[in-house]
Amino acid sequence: MLRPDYPIRTERLTLRPFADGDYDDLHLMTGDPEVVRYLYWEVHTPQETRAALERRKGQAALTEEGQWLTLAMQAEPEGQPRVVGQVVLRWASVAHRQGELGFTLNPAFQGRGYAREAAEAMLRLGFEDLGLHRIYAACDTRNTASWGLLTRLGMRREAHFVEDEIFKGEYGDQYIYAMLDREWRSRQTSST
């Protein structure tokens, strides 16, 4: 079980559960065709974003297999607090101690290292607090920004699935990246 002590602070971010006041920033992401291009959902209407916000507000802990921990990435660009993205950790398997990492970023804030900071914090939660053995991430092979970040995080590409599913009306390819707990510990030791 994982119930983080909020807020979680990184160098420039506050990671926290979503709240009612996050609607506008969330809709900037969920309503943007470029953001959802490689995600399993389509551009959200305002009503769909409201429903998505309600779901996210309830995803602040992992108490059983299959649940998602979904946190807002809050930064203060230009001195104003903004939700610039979200980061997720799914408890994929209790028996096999597996988790899944994901992230979404508002394009206006890409290229600043926010997604990396948030993803590293989620890896830490998964390995150190939840006791996972392996954390993986899947991404569309065309999403070079995502798989580039996964590589920089120290995750290794384990698979390239070719036309493994119909995605938004056409067959798509996926990369699977992963990291083991011992690889995480080794990276932490070598960075100190």
Rank of each mutant, 00 (worst) to 15 (best):
W147Y: 05
E48M: 07
E76P: 13
E163N: 07
A52Q: 09
A178I: 11
R182L: 12
A19C: 08
L15P: 01
E165R: 05
I135P: 11
L130V: 01
R156N: 09
T49V: 06
L101R: 05
T144S: 12
A61E: 08
D5V: 14
R157Y: 14
Y171C: 15
N143R: 06
Y177P: 12
V94M: 09
T70A: 12
H27L: 01
F18Q: 00
T63C: 14
D25W: 09
P81Y: 06
L62K: 08
P77S: 02
R187E: 14
A72L: 04
T141F: 12
R56G: 05
D129S: 09
H27N: 00
N143H: 04
R50S: 08
T151H: 12
M73R: 01
M155G: 15
P33F: 06
A115Y: 03
V43L: 02
Q80L: 08
K57H: 12
R142L: 08
Q67T: 10
R116D: 15
E42S: 01
R116I: 13
R152K: 14
D25M: 13
G154P: 08
R90S: 15
R116S: 14
E42Q: 01
W147A: 02
E34I: 04
P81I: 01
R142I: 02
T151P: 15
R90L: 06
R134V: 04
T30S: 11
L71C: 00
F18K: 00
S190M: 04
T151N: 09
M1F: 12
V36F: 01
Q74R: 10
F127T: 03
Q86A: 14
R50A: 11
H160T: 03
S186K: 10
L39E: 01
N106R: 02
F127E: 04
A95K: 08
M1S: 14
D22W: 04
A108R: 05
F127D: 03
V162I: 15
E65K: 04
F161G: 10
A159G: 10
L89N: 05
G126L: 03
P77N: 02
W184I: 05
Y175A: 09
D5R: 08
M29T: 00
E64Y: 06
T70I: 05
F161V: 14
G99P: 00
